[in-house]
Design a binder for these strands. Sequence first.
DNA 1: ACTTCGACCTGTTGGC
DNA 2: TGCCAACAGGTCGAAG
Length: 278
Amino acid sequence: MHSKEQLLPELPEVETTRRGISPILSGSRVRDVIIRQKKLRWPIPASLRKCLPGNSIDSVDRRGKYLLLACKTGTLIIHLGMSGSLRFVKEGTVPQKHDHVDIVMNDGMVLRYTDPRRFGCMLFEKDDIKSHPLLCKLGPEPLGENFDATYLFGKSRGRSAPIKAFVMDSNIVVGVGNIYANEALFMAGINPKTKAGRISIGRYERLVQCIKTVLKEAITRGGTTLKDFTDSEGKPGYFSQQLQVYGREGEPCMNCGNTLKEIRQAQRSTVYCPHCQR
DNA sequence: ACTTCGACCTGTTGGC
DNA sequence: TGCCAACAGGTCGAAG
């Protein structure tokens, strides 16, 4: 059976994390930064230890799946990759194998970064955060107002890439990962293999609506089940029973009952209903 | 300019 | 039952 117990941080999970850590961080000052493993996707820069201690966290924002913790000297950029998570522990809590970074606050709370696969990153940008190479080319936020059918339709003209790859392209729109791309395309009734450039504006209208709905629902579920980011179980998780297609290959379509099919697209698993999705 | 693909990493799973 | 290869995933950046 598929394993949805494992956290794969998509945009809703990152947003849930942001909302969880923001109130606890605000009003507290960083006392120390402890780096046990600096080899993440990119090495954690020394500037993190130099620039963070002594400063209060002024804001906790999100851009796509990047968390942005701003302080006076710059911005801490955090990505959770595929297996990362953040939670608060009390100072003195013994770190486990994959607990790579601690941000120790002056009140004794510790923001602990865990990431078994180390696909995530922790960077520090002293200058204008918006011009950072990781952020400056990103497409609009999927839940923002400027992500609409007109935008997607315009961007898609002349594109031969399959629609699933297109909506997962962070230069087109951020925050649509494999799971929710599958779910949104199912909800919109669009075959994942359809070339992006061949889809009408009417169908993009539907797709935009579905992407927003799927992400919003997931954030709502994350928010309602998030107990506490200060305990060790404080990771937001999926509700696999809410997923209509992802991980359900070979099982009946919840809409028509036909068998859901799995294919590979760009080395990623795509599950869809050949009957409902055209 | 666009598209595809390799690389990174480790816990879990499937096959023999 | 045990071992190992394959797999899962986000996304950057190189290659086509």
